[in-house]
Amino acid sequence: MKKYALCFSFLFVLFFAVASCASAADVLVIVNKGVVASSISKDDLKRVYLGKKTRWDNGDKINFCLIKTGLLKTFVSDYVGSSVSHYFKYWKKQVFTGKGHMPPFYGKDDDVVKFVAGTKGAIGFVPAGSNTDSVKVITVN
């Protein structure tokens, strides 16, 4: 009985590990080709999207954007550690206390890529398989 329980527990853990990896793999984090970094830590990515990290290491301003599709939920959950509603509430609080402005968000992957490609220091995220020729894909550590 103990053997089966151990086996089941292992499969249980493996299932969720695979599920989590699949979720993260759906998201490509992209930056403007002028951004030097080829990777970003998960902590730093979270801080960028909460407006707490506003500069790249070379001092360039970080401009970030959001996408208004189901991918937003995955990104906010996996990388910001929040729900979409709490995340928007957080930014509305910044707006109504004068501490920031709502980040731009786009309805289509192409628009996100266009924003990132055309904006210095920009960072965004798109689904895996998007056309990223005009931007640089970076890894999240």
Partner: peptide, 11 residues
């Protein structure tokens, strides 16, 4: 979320 004037993408 807002009434905006100008180009949001460039700030």
């Amino acid at each position: 979320y807002a009434v905006e004037f100008g180009d949001v993408s460039t700030g």
